[in-house]
Simulated assay, not measured.
Amino acid sequence: MTWDYNNHEGRAATIVDGGRRVVSYASDGMVLEDGTSVADSDAIGWRAECSCGWKAPLMFERVSDPSAALKPWQVFETEGGWAPKEIEDICHTEWLDHVRPEMGIDAVRQAAEDHRLSGERLDGSVAEARQRGVSWADIGKAVGVTRQTAHERWKALSQNPR
């Protein structure tokens, strides 16, 4: 499974010996970046990764021995291949932490664009109101500023000298 946000595609990547990453799964095993096929049982663990090159600092290690005492970063898994659901969920959370700053700046960009557009609408509304003869005092009152402040801000838009 992959997760998308803007130019980021995250995944719980399956890792084999040598830190090599699985790029696809086939009926007869897994395919590595270099095109080599390996058995599902060759998986040594899973790590959250992103298409931008980011990799989570921790790899969850696959342990196939049921009698082993597991450390917090180890997972009992007999088959290999795809990440178990609980590991995929943890990887997704790690990836979300990675993209969260971009999500925040995107919200700022959107708010700035909304602000620009609303300013343009307000300027247009003031210009139209002035063309219809509305006073600076009434415009100021509608906007929540003084007559003088309204006049100073929008006098260049006004063709009505009143």
Rank of each mutant, 00 (worst) to 15 (best):
E49V: 15
H115N: 03
K85W: 03
A112W: 00
G80Y: 01
A26G: 15
A150D: 10
R116F: 07
D106P: 00
E94F: 11
R132N: 15
L157I: 01
E94H: 10
F60C: 03
R121W: 04
L96R: 04
E49R: 01
P57V: 08
T93V: 11
P57D: 14
Q74M: 15
I87R: 00
R130L: 03
Q74P: 09
G29E: 03
A142G: 06
W73Q: 14
E9A: 09
R121N: 06
P161M: 06
I15P: 07
Y25T: 15
S51E: 03
G140W: 13
A12S: 15
R116I: 03
G119R: 07
R121V: 06
Y5C: 00
P161G: 05
L96G: 01
A111L: 07
G10W: 01
H8L: 10
P72E: 06
K55V: 09
M30S: 08
I87H: 02
T93R: 12
T149I: 09
H115L: 07
I15K: 06
V75C: 11
M1Y: 05
V134P: 03
W46A: 04
R121P: 00
L70N: 04
L32A: 14
A12H: 11
A127D: 01
N7W: 13
S51G: 05
S41I: 12
E61Y: 02
L117I: 09
A83L: 08
L70T: 05
W82C: 12
V134M: 15
T2R: 14
G10A: 09
S135R: 05
A56R: 06
A127H: 01
E49K: 05
K85L: 09
S64Y: 09
G119P: 01
W3K: 04
A127G: 06
P161Y: 08
P57F: 06
W95K: 03
P101T: 10
K141G: 02
